[in-house]
């Protein structure tokens, strides 16, 4: 065995390590489908869709449909913004705040439309802005953003229309508990992010 082998092996192993990205696309899955998965597998995105779906599901049909459309409109604006900008924004934090408020609404089973609809707009916009995949640019990024938008709208439709059927005592209690968990996660993560930002800079 050559003396330089251990050193060469070490160098090879170090070189082959990859950076851990918070918003990394799923390895080997790109394009529109990759975007759909990207939209659904990021925990805070999934939580926001669940919380908004639970809130919209408790609205009347016209308000619920309006909420879906408002979310979709905000999402398109956000996705366009994400495609045009490359700088890190506070979208993830604002999305988390909106998610936490929606979670509180679900926990309290108090979801007035005059608050639910603006929150749908904020959630859509920030969801789109926060969907930019790391380390990818050009046409592939646009494909993934389109996939993210498609996945988000589909998931929200399923969550919103599905939660219409949450009737009776037990499903509503489950919804309240889920809302409290979502709000709690929002509070914890937001505080951690703020402290991290202050500490790390």
């Amino acid at each position: 065995m050559n003396r330089s082998f251990p050193l060469a092996l070490l160098i090879c192993l170090i070189v082959t390590t990859t950076p851990a990205l918070a918003h990394s696309p799923i390895m080997g899955v790109g394009g529109v489908f990759g975007g759909v998965i990207h939209a659904l597998l990021i925990p805070e995105h999934g939580l926001s869709l669940l919380a908004l779906g639970l809130v919209l599901g408790r609205q009347r049909q016209a308000t619920r449909r309006a909420g879906l459309l408002i979310f979709a409109a905000g999402l398109i604006c956000g996705l366009v913004g994400a495609a045009l900008t490359s700088e890190e924004m506070l979208a993830a934090d604002v999305l988390l705040v909106a998610t936490g408020i929606l979670g509180l609404f679900v926990a309290a089973l108090w979801m007035p439309p005059f608050l639910a609809l603006p929150l749908a707009a904020v959630a859509g916009m920030t969801f789109g802005l926060d969907s930019r995949p790391d380390g990818i640019s050009g046409v592939e990024a646009i494909r993934m953003l389109a996939g993210s938008g498609l996945g988000a709208v589909l998931a929200l439709v399923i969550a919103g229309e599905g939660s219409v059927y949450l009737r009776g005592n037990t499903p509503l209690i489950a919804a309240r508990v889920a809302g409290s968990w979502i709000a709690a996660i929002g509070i914890m993560v937001l505080s951690l992010r703020i402290v991290t930002r202050i500490t790390v800079g």
């Binding site: 509180l104 005592n169 209690i173 409290s180 968990w181 709690a184 509070i187 505080s191 951690l192 402290v195």
Partner: peptide, 26 residues
Amino acid sequence: GAPAIWLLPVVFPLVMAVGGAVGVAG
């Protein structure tokens, strides 16, 4: 019994998160 059976598990994580935020803030 109801409503404490769901109210207590709803109150706990919400207030716990506030306590957690205070702890995270040092």
